[in-house]
């Protein structure tokens, strides 16, 4: 049962990563590429962490996975804001 949950959830997570990567490569400008990358990848990482959590032996491991996801969210959100701001500055000076 836990294995089924892991396979299904990490499968969904991988699909989101695939979608995010497709968006990164196909979308026309910096802002929509950032949108695809951060939104899809954050969701994908969340699903993968959730899937892996079903294999965890202790609650401590589940908490660590949740912490990793939260930190990745924080970093990705901040970095995408900074990249977007830099791109905005470049566009204005053009």
């Amino acid at each position: 049962m836990a294995d089924v949950a892991t396979v299904v959830l990490t499968g969904i997570g991988l699909f989101f990563f695939l979608a995010g990567t497709a968006g990164l490569m196909r979308f026309p400008d910096t802002f929509s590429r950032l949108h695809a990358l951060t939104k899809a990848d954050n969701l994908g990482l969340g699903f993968i962490a959730l899937g892996v959590a079903f294999q965890a032996a202790t609650w401590r491991e589940v908490a660590l996975l949740a912490l990793i996801w939260a930190l990745a969210l924080l970093a990705a959100g901040t970095v995408s804001q900074l990249v977007a701001r830099a791109a905005l500055g470049e566009e204005e000076t053009r």
């Binding site: 930190l71 924080l74 959100g77 901040t78 804001q81 900074l82 701001r85």
Partner: peptide
């Protein structure tokens, strides 16, 4: 800004 907030949240951790 975003960076100022980030610089306050992450360092303690």
């Amino acid at each position: 800004g975003v960076m100022a907030g980030f610089g306050r949240v992450l360092p303690p951790l």
